[in-house]
């Protein structure tokens, strides 16, 4: 197990180096000029040139790459061209916002998905099964940006039940310590604040969590159907309602592996792929941070941000794979 873990970790190194080269090449292939974006339509040629020089954009690419990597190895993610702040500092709240959103999206996905899957299998071919699976089918086919817009239209604009954008109330912002607002409000005992935070989380979490929810529901249902073929379950089933909980327990255990798979795969995807959800809900997360950086050609931010997300993604996958082999030694990588 230990040797396997080490081997997998070593395999990460070439991937990460390759990734840094890829990211660096990509961003320098992108046309456009950060100096011009920052200064806008009123910039004079002299000022632009001076700024390009200051930013080191006139250096040869290899020099720029070397400088970047040297800094990176010293733990310095660089400085944003736009805000002139250190990226390792600046990215924290964005990362926290995305992690918080992803967490709640996955929580929604797992709770609803697993329960719906189990019940659907238990009541196979019932109206509940059909409806749940129809919802799951629609769920996996859902364009999240559209879902987000419709949620906003119905719950924020028409019914005015929930806030449509942002992480907290603008008039009563959260006094942030950890950047994780849920934790912040709880440790400060600010329960009105906590309520606000949760209300802000509902719509984007559902939008982001719908696809994993649908996938989990379908996977749980099919693995549950397998379980129910087992003799002891058939016996339990014959005894009636009280035995539901027995099945439920077994089903949960069985659903664990597929759920873990989806959680692993999707969490990585959500971290970077939340761009659309974050754009619609003006969620100050890392996907949107990077997307904005691409539009203003903030090279250091694009570089470090993508590298960071990719690293997290790779690590999550690694953890999932390791967990697998811990749970079920049969599926260990040879």
């Amino acid at each position: 197990m230990f040797a396997y873990t080490v081997r997998r970790l070593i395999m990460l190194i070439p991937v990460l180096i390759g990734m840094s080269i890829l990211v660096f090449s990509i961003i320098h292939l992108i046309p456009g000029d950060p100096a011009k974006t920052l200064l806008g339509e009123k910039a004079s040629p002299e000022v632009l040139e001076k700024m390009r020089e200051d930013l080191g954009l006139n250096d040869p690419l290899l020099v720029q790459y070397k400088n970047y990597m040297v800094n990176l190895l010293q733990g310095d993610l660089g400085t944003s061209i736009k805000t002139k702040r250190s990226i390792s500092e600046e990215i924290k709240p964005y990362l926290a916002a995305t992690v918080e959103l992803t967490f709640f999206a996955m929580l929604f996905a797992v709770i609803v998905g697993v329960n719906a899957g189990i019940i659907a299998a238990w009541k196979q071919n019932s109206w509940f099964d059909y409806i749940a699976m129809l919802i799951a089918l629609i769920g996996v086919s859902m364009p999240v940006f559209w879902l987000g817009l419709m949620e906003q239209y119905i719950f924020a604009q028409k019914l005015q039940w929930l806030p449509s954008i942002g992480r907290d109330s603008i008039l009563n912002p959260i006094n942030s310590i950890t950047n994780f607002y849920i934790i912040d409000t709880v440790i400060q005992g600010d329960f009105d604040g906590l309520k606000q935070i949760l209300k802000h989380l509902i719509l984007p979490s559902i939008a982001l969590g719908t696809i994993p929810m649908a996938i989990i529901a379908r996977m749980t249902r099919s693995s549950m159907l397998e379980v129910m073929k087992a003799d002891y379950i058939r016996t339990a089933r014959a005894k009636g309602v009280a035995q539901f909980f027995l099945v439920y327990k077994h089903a949960l255990k069985n659903a664990f592996i597929p759920v873990l798979t989806v959680v692993g795969l999707q969490t990585g995807l959500l971290l970077g792929g939340a761009v659309l959800t974050e754009t619609i809900f003006a969620w100050p997360g890392v996907g949107k941070y990077l997307y904005d950086a691409i539009s203003v050609r903030d090279y250091p931010v694009i570089q470090s941000g993508i590298l960071m997300i990719a690293t997290i993604f790779v690590i999550i996958n690694l953890i999932v794979d390791l967990l697998y082999s811990a749970i079920d030694p049969r599926i260990r990588y040879q």
Binding site: M19, L29, I30, G273, V275, I309, F313
Partner: peptide, 24 residues
């Protein structure tokens, strides 16, 4: 295989955004 690994480690939508931005 390593190139595939690298590409799969990218958030795909951001990669697509970057490619379109390069190509126009």
């Amino acid at each position: 295989s390593r190139v595939f690994d690298i590409m799969l480690a990218f958030p795909s939508i951001l990669l697509a955004i970057a490619i379109v931005t390069i190509l126009g």
